[in-house]
């Protein structure tokens, strides 16, 4: 379960203060499927960065699965990112010199999992995402949809409880976009909380709940909104 309470985030752009997030409070139950929508510059990505512990709020509290993670130190937050959160990006962010296999294995390598265990887990994951015959290919030898599937395999290899996706279909053609969305939804069905930033209304409509951001505030939403 995710609970954000009165999150504020202010950036200094030159001399000017920019309020990226103003008093944002959101609650998401485990297993929810949420689309965060809104115009560019509305604070969608800032919110996702806070949720993914890639950025710290200036004030407010963030509770993840009962832990107050906004107060943890850098190392503990890294551990949370490793075990509880999976990221999917618009530009995939695969390491270009590594094969699909090695890209997926990266979180396991970082956490010190033994090579033979890595071998089985990564092979299983690649097969599950239809990439069994692409293991030795480098990212530049893969299509956009395949790259995003590799990225999703990497995001889920540690069995996180939350998947954060930042415009996951923004850089894909329509059919691979839908394919990727279906994979993410399938993971959601298996119980992972899925939070997706998008400004594509069609993608937004697929979710069970939408949060609309305008100018750093949560302006409203549709669906099963149980936030206070």
């Amino acid at each position: 379960m995710i609970q954000l309470r009165h999150i504020e985030r202010v950036f200094m752009v030159g001399e000017e203060e920019v309020h990226a997030l103003r008093d944002v409070s959101i609650t998401a139950e485990a297993g929810e499927y949420i689309a965060i929508m809104g115009p560019s510059g509305s604070g969608k990505s800032s919110l996702l960065n806070i949720l993914g512990l890639l950025d710290r709020p200036d004030s407010g509290a963030y509770e993840l699965d009962g832990t107050l993670v906004s107060n943890l130190d850098e190392k503990q937050q890294a551990a949370i990112r490793m075990h509880k959160i999976g990221f999917v990006f618009q530009f995939f962010h695969l390491v270009p010199r590594l094969s699909a296999f090695d890209n997926v294995a990266l979180p396991l390598v970082l956490s010190g999992v033994k090579p033979d265990e890595r071998q089985t887990r990564v092979s299983t994951a690649l097969a599950a995402f239809g990439l069994g015959n692409r293991a030795r290919h480098r990212p530049d030898q893969l299509s956009g949809g395949q790259r995003q599937r590799v990225a999703i395999a990497r995001a889920t290899i540690m069995q996180p409880s939350v998947i954060l996706a930042d415009e996951p279909t923004g850089n894909l053609d329509r059919s691979s976009g839908i394919e990727v969305a279906e994979i993410l939804e399938e993971l959601n069905h298996q119980g992972m909380t899925l939070i997706m930033v998008t400004h594509d209304p069609d993608m937004g409509k697929r979710s069970r709940r939408q949060i609309l951001m305008v100018d750093g505030r949560v302006e409203g939403g549709k669906g099963e909104d149980r936030s206070p």
């Binding site: 890294a78 990006f89 962010h93 979180p107």
Partner: peptide, 16 residues
Amino acid sequence: RAEIGLLKAIGASRGQ
């Protein structure tokens, strides 16, 4: 830069 950001996102600590 992007690779370093990614490593952090998937759980690499400063020390790593």
